[in-house]
Design a protein around this nucleic acid. Structure first.
Lengths: 209, 209
DNA sequence: CTTATGACTAAGCGCTTGCTTAGTCTGACA
DNA sequence: TGTCAGACTAAGCAAGCGCTTAGTCATAAG
C-alpha cells in the first residue's frame, strides 16, 4: 500500500494539478451557492463570488468560463442528486401508497436540508442558457414522470383514487418544492418534521375511500 | 348635474393634471409587471420599463422615486387583493370543510389568473426595502392566520383531523402559491381546472376519517 | 398676452458590471 | 539548473446601470 504506484504523495499539505484545481472549483461553487441564495443570480456579482471564495475576481475565470456556468453546475448537481434519491426511493418501495409517502417524504427532506441550493435550482431556471435549460428540463421531466408512475400504479392496484394524474403529481411535488420559499434552517421546524407531515398529507391526497 | 361644480371637463380627449398622471402611473406599473415577470427585479433595467411604457427613461422618475417603489406598489396591490378575496370567501362560507375548499380554490384561481403578478409578489420579497418588506410581511401573516383559523374551526367542529395546524396551513397555501412557478396562461390548463383540483385535494388533506 | 404648473425628454454623471490582458509565482520534471 | 505548465493577481476595458440635471412643451388660469 506504499506510494510506488501513485504519483500523488500520501499526505500532501498543498495538493497540485488537477487535485488543487478541483478543490478550488468546489470552493467557488460553495461561494456561488451562498451568493446566489442571498442575492439571486442577476443580483450577484462575480466579484462577490470571488470574495466569498477568498480570491481575486479574475481567478473565477480560470475555473469557470462565465457566471452562468457556475449556476448551471449548481443546478445540474441539485437536479441529479434529487432525481437519484427519488429513483432509489421509488425502486425500494413496493406498495404504491407507501411509495408515494416515501417519495414525498424524501423530496421534502431533501429540499429542507438543501434549502439554499433548492431555492437557486427552482427559481433561477430562466437564467440558464437555452442549451443548459433544456438539459435541466429533462431532469425535471424525469422527476415528474416518477411521480406520475407512482400514481398510476396505485390506481391500477385500486388503492388510490386519482382523476387528474398529471395535475395531482404536480400538486404533490409542490408540497416539497414550495418549502424552499419560506424554510429557514435556524427555525424550529426540522427537515424530519416536514418529511413526516408532507408524507402523511400526500397519502391523504391520493387514498381511495 | 352640469359642469358648474366640476373643474374637470365632462369628456376630455386628453386628461390633465392628476387624472393624466394616474393613467401614466398605471401604464408604468403594467410595464414593470411585464418586465419583472420576464427578467426578475434585479435583471430588469429602468430603461426597459420606460421602453415598455413608451416613454423616456427619465419619465419613470416623475412618477416613482425608485425602481423598488414600483416593485413595492405591485407587491402591495397583489397582497391586498388576494388577502381581500380570501377574507370575503372565508366570511361567506359557514361549514369548515366547505370553507377550506373555497379558500384554496379561490387562492389557486387568483394565482393562475394573476400568475405574472403572483410570481413577482412571491419571489421578489427579498428585493424590498426593510420598511416595505415588513408591511408586506403583515399581509402574509394575515393570509396564514385566515388559513389556520379555518383549520381550527374544523377541528372544533370535529370534521377535520389535523395535528399540525401551522404546518398544514402552510402546506395548503403551497398548493396555490407554487403554481406560479410553472403555470403558463397559454397552456391547456385553465384557472378553473386548478381551482377545482386544488379545492378537492385540500379537503382530502384535512378531512377526519 | 403673461405667467405658472407639471408631464416629459436629451444628455449625461458617477459607478458597477462581466470579463480580459499581461504578467507573477510556485512546483514538477528533464 | 533550466524549462514549462498552470493557478493566480493587478489593472483595466467597454458596456450598461440607477438616477439627475437642465430645459422643452402643452395646458390653463389671471
Amino acid at each position: 500500500m506504499l506510494s510506488t504506484m501513485s504519483h500523488i504523495p500520501a499526505s500532501a499539505p498543498e495538493p497540485v494539478g488537477n487535485e488543487r484545481s478541483a478543490a478550488t472549483r468546489e470552493r467557488l461553487l460553495a461561494a456561488a451557492v451562498e451568493a446566489f441564495a442571498a442575492s439571486g443570480f442577476a443580483g450577484t456579482t462575480t466579484r462577490d463570488i470571488a470574495a466569498r471564495a477568498g480570491m481575486s475576481p479574475a481567478a473565477v475565470y480560470v475555473h469557470y468560463a462565465t457566471k452562468e456556468e457556475l449556476l448551471f453546475e449548481i443546478s445540474r448537481r441539485g437536479h441529479r442528486g434529487s432525481l437519484q434519491i427519488m429513483t432509489e426511493v421509488a425502486e425500494a418501495t413496493e406498495e404504491p401508497l407507501e411509495r408515494v409517502k416515501a417519495m414525498i417524504s424524501t423530496f421534502s427532506r431533501w429540499h429542507a436540508v438543501n434549502s439554499r441550493e433548492g431555492r437557486i435550482v427552482q427559481y433561477e431556471f430562466d437564467a440558464l442558457t437555452t442549451e443548459h435549460r433544456s438539459e435541466i428540463a429533462e431532469y425535471r421531466r424525469g422527476i415528474e414522470k416518477l411521480m406520475r408512475d407512482a400514481l398510476t400504479a396505485g390506481i391500477a392496484a385500486e388503492v388510490m383514487d386519482v382523476t387528474d394524474v398529471k395535475g395531482t403529481a404536480l400538486a404533490l411535488l409542490s408540497l416539497s418544492i414550495d418549502l424552499v420559499r419560506w424554510y429557514h434552517p435556524d427555525g424550529p421546524v426540522t427537515p424530519d418534521d416536514l418529511a413526516e407531515l408532507h408524507g402523511d398529507l400526500a397519502v391523504r391526497m391520493v387514498t381511495a375511500r
